[in-house]
């Protein structure tokens, strides 16, 4: 019996140690965001605040200077939001439609089409950078939010199609046959029968797309400059600038605000994300 108790203690001990390792960065950012620069410079980034400085948030949000623009991270945050919402919604809808036609309306060459689209998931960004630059230039979308939305929609379709198609193949074929005999067409079946079955996978694709696009850096920094950059690019600009005179308190506040949307999405939807991911998306 005591051996069993020892084993349980070892399990909880190990889990707690790992939990501490995972939580350190979050704790560091949260604590530093309410510390003063002098306080941090005097000790280290790991420590409790000697005095609480709440002004860091307001300052980095609206008046901190990044690359000579003293607007805080606010405009970049809104840029990211204006990019992530349309890109997530559109790529998810198109992915659902693609997945639906690939999984349930088999046609000649459908596996080839699916194979090519899935390749897009694995294609490294660096293969696509220059072509995207040319496409954006020709469409006049260079240095615009719309340009970034376009990129994320088209690249996102690969992921959303993969997820949705793998989920939809498990819908019984008889269901579709019954609907066809009932007289429902392509769109009515999608709208009335397939979509109502989709919430588990749509949650996965929305969370995946939202976090992926929000956190994306390479395209943001390559295809937009100055005030049109998303928040990830602004964070890098901010830390590059700060390296001369470190201001970890304000930077922590910026990091926390920039990470907040995805953390919140994950905190509320993470449970469904894992469930959906393992139920259909990863096979």
């Amino acid at each position: 019996m005591s051996e069993r108790l020892l084993a349980r203690a070892a399990i909880y001990g190990a889990l707690t140690l790992f939990a501490a390792f995972y939580l350190v960065p979050l704790a560091v950012v949260m604590l530093n965001s309410v510390r003063s620069t002098e306080d941090i410079n005097h000790s280290s980034v790991i420590g409790l605040p000697s005095v609480y400085v709440w002004g860091n948030f307001a300052h980095t949000w609206s008046s901190y200077c990044i690359a000579e623009h003293c607007t805080g991270i606010q405009p970049y945050f809104w840029n990211s939001l204006r990019m992530v919402i349309p890109a997530t919604v559109i790529s998810t809808l198109l992915g659902a439609l693609n997945g639906y036609s690939l999984a349930l309306w088999r046609f000649r060459g459908d596996t080839l089409v699916f194979g090519i689209i899935t390749l897009g998931v694995f294609l490294p960004e660096q293969m696509k950078l220059v072509p995207w630059a040319i496409v954006l230039r020709d469409l006049g979308l260079f240095n615009t939010i719309s340009g970034l939305v376009l990129i994320h929609v088209i690249q996102g379709i690969s992921f959303t199609t993969l997820f949705c198609r793998n989920y939809y193949v498990s819908i019984p074929a008889d269901l579709l046959k019954a609907a066809r005999i009932d007289g429902a067409g392509f769109f009515r079946i999608f709208w009335r029968i397939v979509l109502p079955l989709s919430p588990p996978i749509l949650i996965v694709t929305v969370i995946w797309q939202f976090t992926g696009i929000w956190n994306e850096f390479l395209y943001g920094v390559t295809f937009s400059t100055g005030e049109n950059q998303p928040v990830t690019a602004a964070l890098i600009a901010l830390s590059a600038q700060i390296s001369q005179a470190p201001q970890y308190g304000q930077q922590s506040a910026a990091v926390l605000m920039a990470a907040a949307p995805t953390l919140l999405v994950y905190l509320f939807g993470g449970r469904y994300f894992v469930r959906g991911l393992t139920s259909g998306a990863v096979k």
Binding site: A178, R180, I181, G183, A184
Partner: peptide
């Protein structure tokens, strides 16, 4: 002639009831 226009009705092994309705 499409399935819907053949004036037939079908009962499936899996019943194929629409789960969301």
């Amino acid at each position: 002639v499409a399935a819907k226009d053949r004036n037939i009705a079908m009962v499936f092994q899996s019943y194929a009831l629409y789960p969301s309705m």
